[in-house]
Amino acid sequence: MRFSSQRILPFVLVLTLALCMAPGRALGVTNLLAEIMNLVLGPFAIAGNMLGQWLRPAPLGLEGPVNDPEYVLHLQQERDEFERLYVAEQAKVDALQQQLAQAQMIASAQMHIPVRPLVARVGVRSSTPHGTVTLSRGSNHGVYVGAVAAYNAVHLLGRVIEVSRLQCVFQPLANKDSPLVDAIILPRDQRDTPTSRAARVQLQPKGDGTLRGDVDRAAIINAGDIVKLLDDTWPPAAQGMIVGHVESVESKESEPLRNTIVVRPQYHISQVAYVTLKLEMEDSATQPGGAPR
């Protein structure tokens, strides 16, 4: 008998260890054992509690679980948790309102290209300034490589360069690795200037948040003029979106007939928590700059 109990003990201990490490849903059987134990001990424990109350009565006004520090601690923890949830929910409501505003702005914009706005949260940011950024939407949400990201409906921020199922990598317009961008410059007080008459410029990101390009010195360009994208390598939905404003016009010493303009986007990805991805609908998809899948 003793021999067999010696042999059983290691198995029992291993089983106990397995139960100890098992998740809560696998420990349902313990409820039955506990219930049986409570059933047996219950009447005697009640008597014991009465004896305990008699030996050491609870202070007046503090009877019941309020007198139990563990219970009070539990309540305090619950209160703290609810406060945390309240703050988190408030932040969520604010974020949703912000997203809604962004989506409404896109919907109200005059767009000839049917697009589906998709609000994406900015996730992991690159450690370098104006580096790539991970957005919280991926191919499962219809995002595709080349999809453009906007802020306040018409401000172009950049485009998607990589897509996974649940997220995508976004390259800001001002990223140094971004390709050259063709754009037109519209005088700030004559925004209705036909594109055929507007000065054209090829902008190159410099990595400091600005884009630079050379323009004909004869073109009248001033600081504050609006620069809009007009580039065949970008999707139709991006055409005409604002790249930024002319920050300065500098004369180019090596080429006396040309000026260098510095364009600064109004919004940088580092300033925003959300962007709106403009996803072109299937029937309007064209190949330049990527197409929906």
């Binding site: 106990t16 260890l17 139960l19 100890c20 490490m21 809560g24 849903r25 420990l27 349902g28 313990t30 409820n31 054992l33 506990a34 134990m37 409570n38 563990e70 539990h74």
Partner: peptide, 14 residues
Amino acid sequence: LAPAARSMNWHLVG
């Protein structure tokens, strides 16, 4: 198996 300090629908044996 004694009642735990925290409300749980299982008992951690071990």
